[in-house]
């Protein structure tokens, strides 16, 4: 997906830049916007709904993300009632609630840890682009380190959360490594919930 950073731009620049980029895209292509203030988020959303190009929008931590789509008639008439929801034929990627990804370590495979870390980053980078989004991503043991604020994997996890995945961290593990203040994403939970998620899953992916 094409991405566009609109952070720090004064009003109405975020809308102008969005429109400019949409104009250069092909019909049906999607664009992902990153915005840092609520007013701009609401205005860009209202604009995109107005031209029937809005797909999805969400606030994740301090950041607003909007997904929009190039439509055939960018200046199409607005709907009869101005506040009605914009009909959209686009469906967000499918979230499989019974698919659980289990991240039990901050490395992938056994061997050199630097290589293992590179591999796990590549894994997260890859699953965010797959058509099926896991319903739950469980992080435990050293896997919780993947959710740290300064971790390279944070942005991949953020995107997966945005797409619909629930990120759950093992509380005992976070405390063990003394990382509570440094966690950048996810909900801290307990072994009961982790066990419940694992036992009710139809598919468990353990990289």
């Amino acid at each position: 997906m094409i991405e566009l950073n609109l952070k720090g731009l004064p009003c109405p620049k975020p809308i102008i830049e969005t429109k400019k980029r949409l104009d250069s895209m092909c019909e049906g292509e999607q664009l992902k916007l990153f915005i840092d203030n609520e007013t701009a988020y609401h205005n860009v959303t209202a604009f995109l709904k107005g031209i029937n190009a809005f797909v999805n929008g969400n606030k994740i931590k301090d950041e607003f993300i909007i997904i929009c789509q190039k439509v055939a008639y960018i200046n199409a008439a607005s709907p009869a009632e101005t506040d009605c929801e914009t009909p959209s034929c686009f469906c967000a990627p499918n979230v499989d609630r019974k698919l659980v990804v289990q991240l039990h370590s901050n490395v992938m495979g056994v061997g050199d840890d630097d290589l293992g870390n590179t591999l796990i980053l590549a894994f997260l980078d890859s699953i965010r682009s797959l058509p099926i989004v896991p319903g739950t991503i469980l992080l435990y043991n050293s896997g919780v380190k993947l959710a740290l604020i300064d971790s390279k994997s944070l942005e991949f996890l953020k995107e997966l959360e945005f797409l619909g995945a629930e990120i759950i961290l093992c509380g005992t593990c976070v405390n063990y490594y003394n990382l509570k203040e440094k966690i950048g994403i996810g909900r801290i939970s307990n072994m009961f919930e982790i066990a419940e998620k694992l036992t009710s899953a139809t598919t468990i992916v353990k990289p």
Binding site: C11, P12, I15, I16, E17, T18, K19, K20, T39, H42, N43, A46, F47
Partner: peptide, 9 residues
Amino acid sequence: SGCIPGAAF
């Protein structure tokens, strides 16, 4: 072209 002031929204 998207030049819509915030006050309009």
